[in-house]
């Protein structure tokens, strides 16, 4: 018990900031890329590409995270940078997919009425399409965040550090208390992040759904 408490309270916490970085940086980059991308492919001129992009993303999502890291390892080598890149690519998918799905599912009659009243395409996007898409986009961000928290463990395999270092050390040296401590922090992080995003979602979603 003492060994476990020691792992939990003294060894593992030091790796938390690193792990948090491995989550927040890829998430931020992923949101910055996939939101605009999702918006662009749902514009009338590009709409025919939306389905292909969706299919591509859906396929990419089925590749296991370990495989993603393994694929990039030969090109990018080891270390923090490659880990961030692999995690970003993995985090992109749910957000882009949900953004496209959300904007495409805004009812046609609502958009038609908005255009018919004299909203410009930009006004339709910001006053109609985006507000109505918030719940589904936020769900995508949530999925992506929780996924990244657990996938970031694998970053340790390519020298990316983070909580994975604790867990893999536990595995390698047969120290179950380290594995347990690391896992508890990963779980807590996932839950807290999920709650935080849910809170942001609640503040952003249109009032009629509340």
């Amino acid at each position: 018990m003492d060994i476990f408490m020691d792992s939990l309270l003294r060894r593992a916490p030091g790796y938390l900031p690193e792990h948090l970085q491995l989550v927040i940086i890829p998430m931020a980059i992923a949101i910055l890329i996939s939101l605009p991308a999702g918006i662009i492919v749902t514009r009338p001129g590009y709409r025919r590409y939306a389905e292909k992009v969706m299919a591509l993303f859906n396929t990419a999502q089925t590749i296991p995270p370990l495989a993603v890291i393994a694929i990039f390892f030969p090109f990018l080598g080891l270390g923090y940078g490659p880990a961030i890149l692999a995690l970003t690519i993995y985090a992109l998918l749910p957000i882009a997919r949900n953004t496209i799905a959300a904007i495409s599912s805004v009812p046609e009659d609502v958009k038609e009425a908005a255009r018919g009243m004299g909203m410009t395409p930009k006004e339709v996007l910001f006053h109609v399409e985006l507000p109505l898409s918030v719940p589904v986009i936020m769900a995508g961000i949530k999925t992506s965040a929780v996924l990244t928290v657990s996938t970031a463990v694998l970053a340790a395999l390519v020298g990316g550090k983070g909580m994975g270092a604790v867990i893999f050390a536990g595995i390698n040296f047969f120290r179950p208390e380290l594995i347990l401590a690391g896992t508890i922090y990963i779980g807590m992080m996932a839950v807290i992040l999920e709650r935080l995003i849910s809170l942001a979602e609640y503040m952003l979603v249109p009032a009629h759904i509340k």
Binding site: D109, E112, A113, G116, V128, P131, P206, A207, H208
Partner: peptide, 13 residues
């Protein structure tokens, strides 16, 4: 402009 499906914005009062 009035259409059959009305097209009220669901997120606005």
């Amino acid at each position: 402009y009035v259409i059959q499906q009305i097209g009220l914005l669901p997120h606005r009062t």
